[in-house]
Amino acid sequence: MSMNNKIAGVVAGALLVAAGLMPASGLAQYPTKPVRLIVAFPAGGSTDIIARLVAQRLGEKLGQQVIVDNRGGAGGTIGTEIAAKATPDGHTLTMGTTSTHVIAPAAYAKVNYDPVKDFEPITLVASTPYLLVLHPGVKANNLKEFVALAKSQPGKLNYASAGTGSTTQLAMEMLNRAAGMDIVHIPYSGNGPAGAAALGGQVQALFGSMPAVLPHAQAGRLRPIAVGTSKRSPALPNVPTVAESGYPGFEVSLWLGFFAPKGTPKAVLSRLQKELVAIANSPDMAAQFEKNGASAVTNTPAEMTALMKTELDKYGKVIKAAGIQLK
């Protein structure tokens, strides 16, 4: 036997042993090892916190640890790509959001995954509303007055966003278009700095994520004039929705849900769906979400696919119209 053959033999032997040690994948004993939950954002962000809350509970129900694996970067596209290419055996899941599964595919010039074709949607778990707030110095008490003010001085007012291509920008751009306003976009790096800019009056308006702006609205430091969801928020029952203020059909929120790579066994998916829906709807988990400015929402895989398709179309149009192109 030549040296090369010997090496090949040893390698083949080792591989056989490894294969033997490797647990057979299948439903009978799912999960057979810790489940990896890829979160495409850095540890500590709002997506990560919700993922960790759910992961802990899911681990208890599955009888195997669910390990959160943060793969942040590039608007969530790096982690999501890793998840799309992972072995579809139910031991790798990802927390997808409006950002990773709708906005990034629509706004980036190149994304190496297809949000619909490369994933098996499982269920939504939570959604976060957006709230339009003004600096208290702005002379407008509701959306109608604000639109009138903006139209009387086109190109003079500014709004802050959490970054180019963020939901906070797209929400305002949608309103800009719906109401025929020309309010100038000033991008900041994240919700915190954008909130500070609105508080300090550096900009006049911000369509901010609820957890970031609600405390300031409640304290009277920012004036809430409309919520972006289809229903009013229980936290601010007196603030009307954008839709009821004269722009029917307007809806912007950030959803978070679970996805598995395409090809994950159906039985595994339905088991996960059942567990996750129960977890998200449990009262104590719903309360935890509430504290993070989110509310529990669940649905079916078919509904998730439909939601993604509608939103890809909706945001795709805004992104094109506003000329947003991320490279």
């Binding site: 916190i49 915190g192 700095p193 609600l214 405390p215 300031h216 409640q218 304290a219 504290k291």
Partner: peptide, 23 residues
């Protein structure tokens, strides 16, 4: 308003505890 990543985390911890940081 968080100063940096760590402060953002501490804010997150506060909100998990049901306290909205702010004035």
């Amino acid at each position: 308003i968080p100063h940096g990543a760590t402060m953002a985390l501490l804010l997150g911890a506060l909100t998990i505890q049901g306290i909205a940081p702010g004035p």
